[in-house]
Design a protein around this nucleic acid. Structure first.
Lengths: 348, 348
DNA sequence: GCATAAAATAGAAACGTTTCCAGAAACGAC
DNA sequence: GTCGTTTCTGGAAACGTTTCTATTTTATGC
């Protein structure tokens, strides 16, 4: 018995009670409260009064069962404790709330199976729409799973071919290329790059920018310093340790995403290397308050709040019949202290 | 029409379809699938087979409407982009998911009215339980609003008198007292303290620790350096600026909570003051990765992941009939670089 | 084999809405 | 007045389950 008994909490007031009090049919109550046009002024007042007096609130589940609309949006991300996702979720929830929708939050824990279970759960809950940052883009059953949802979908930084969904994509390659070119122009050519799996757009687009910078600069692309695997901190840390203990070790590092950056920073610390001094360091995506920490980190910045708002807007648009669309969000290379360093030996 | 038509998506399979296929009554389907004891093995197999073949999934809303249980938990916090809350939400959601519950996330934006609207919304959605970090403890209608929910409640770091709910409280005063005593022993007596409103337990308990440290040390308590108002960064920044431009300005600062800390750091930066050098600085609550930033910040630490898990556990316990309980989480003063500084003039 | 109890099943009544349909009232035009 | 339209209202049928009650079947003890 999940709902506590409540000492003397009178049974909840239903549409029948209102009908009885107003002395009209229940269908009239429903019509008045849902703003149906064919209702006389006299009826409207009578019903409104009775409803107010009784403090009537329509039962959500009965409404959803009958009408099919749940006013509920699913939100799936790897990990809500990642502050970048946190900002997206916050802004998104605010926008959805304004429009009368509530948000069902689920962490996928970066796991394909968990993600799939979550989507199934959301389908049973008949969500009106889904906003998701998927673990991977090329899971075989993914498209059919999402289509079975029978609800509009907005993907965050993912490109799933053949799926009729909206997407909020970031223009990663631009920011990463700018950052890489800056590092090259400072004299670096051994630049390390750590990011997640190439099975998602995010990584592929970052890599594109990284590669094109070397091409544009006419410098050899350091294949051995590129490490792509997972977005989490564990991977970032172990790969940082590995790369920075190589014989011909890198002089600069780009870390892709909050998780990678966290891992990289921890790894560097354990190796006793200081960003901005012993190496040049650029983080892709910012931590909150990145600009005020004692040490100033360079970054490739994108506006998480805007991503959240745009995702909500795109979804609401689709719910009310609009077509899917793709929104491109700009990224910007922000130069701070940590872009220096790593070349002392060579400068001499 | 919120649910898209779906080109040829066959109508969803209902319990009637399964009953027809298996050649039994619909009540038998329900009994088998909900694990009712009075079911023959033959029936169980027959029904299971039919259900599997049709890919039957019970309609969530019909179930909830009839049974009253929604398997949904409300989660209300000020702001999910605060990484401290993010960790709590993440761990909490994981635990709830394991138990078959989903989480409805709502930001209160630190606003009493928004919070109240959110609670009303959750009531209409007949949540099975609520986990909340409330904006304030002494809103007049708060108790009745929460009681009308008719579901168990777990409060995060809040003490609401007369409410029959569980609570996860942190032992703030211990950590704050330790930190303050350390600063006093280093020679500080002009220590500033910024935190949120005293209308919540969090602030009151921190203040208690702050005050008792001065008493224990026999040092005059600097009333003019205590600033209590809001938890957000704006307040933290403006108060930091105000306090550190006083004539007899403080030599140390404790900032209460992630928001205050963010604001304080920004304020100090604008004033050109460096923590650990121009002043001693202790943050109450940690940022993720606090320990690896170039600059090492001292903190009063508490385990957010544990808070999230405990909250989920306490709620699930109450849902299955257990009594409310209060869990006390320890805090620890962690000394890092930023506890130094601020006393150069005096040292000479 | 027969009464009796226990186990298994079917049927129907909820749960609280929305929405369809039919009919009543009101209205103007003739 | 009668007729055809509108405008409004009431009744009832959904929506897809769970659960209560009644009935049938099976098992048990003698």
């Amino acid at each position: 018995m999940p709902r506590s008994k409540g000492k003397k909490s009178s049974a909840p007031v239903t549409i029948h009670d209102v009908a009885e009090r107003a002395g009209v049919a229940i269908s009239s109550i429903s019509r008045v409260l849902s703003g149906h046009p064919d209702v006389s002024e006299r009826m409207r007042i009578k019903v409104q009064k009775a409803a107010d007096e009784l403090g009537y609130e329509p039962d959500f589940f009965a409404q959803s069962l009958r009408s099919g609309a749940t006013k509920t949006i699913g939100f799936i991300i790897r990990d809500i404790s990642n502050p970048f996702f946190g900002v997206i979720a916050q802004c998104c929830e605010q926008e959805l709330r304004k429009a009368g929708y509530s948000m069902l939050l689920m962490n996928s824990d970066g796991d394909v199976a968990t993600e799939s279970i979550n989507i199934a759960q959301l389908r049973r809950r008949k969500i009106d729409g889904l906003i998701a940052s998927l673990v991977s883009e090329d899971i075989p059953e993914l498209n059919s799973t999402l289509e079975k949802l029978n609800a509009p979908v907005v993907l965050l930084d993912r490109e799933v071919v053949g799926l009729n969904s909206s997407a909020i994509l970031a223009n990663h390659h631009q920011g990463v290329e700018d950052a890489t070119l800056d590092l090259i122009s400072r004299g670096h050519n051994r630049i390390a790059f750590i990011s997640g799996s190439t099975r998602v757009y995010t990584t592929r687009d970052r890599l594109k920018g990284f590669k094109s910078a070397f091409k544009k600069a006419g410098v050899a692309y350091p294949t051995d310093l590129v490490s792509l695997g997972k977005f989490d901190a564990e991977f970032g840390e172990s790969e940082t340790k590995r790369l920075f203990t190589l014989k011909d070790r890198p002089t600069a590092l780009l870390s892709g995403g909050i998780g990678s950056t966290a891992g990289a920073m921890r790894g560097l610390k354990k190796l006793g290397l200081v960003p901005g001094k012993d190496l040049a360091f650029v983080a892709i995506d910012e931590w909150p308050m990145f600009d005020v920490y004692g040490q100033q980190f360079s970054s490739v910045y994108r506006d998480a709040a805007m991503i959240g708002r745009e995702a909500a807007a795109a979804l609401l648009e689709m719910i009310s019949g609009g077509s899917p669309r793709t929104i491109m969000v700009e990224t910007h290379y922000i130069v701070r202290d940590s872009s220096s360093g790593g070349l002392k030996a060579k400068k001499k």
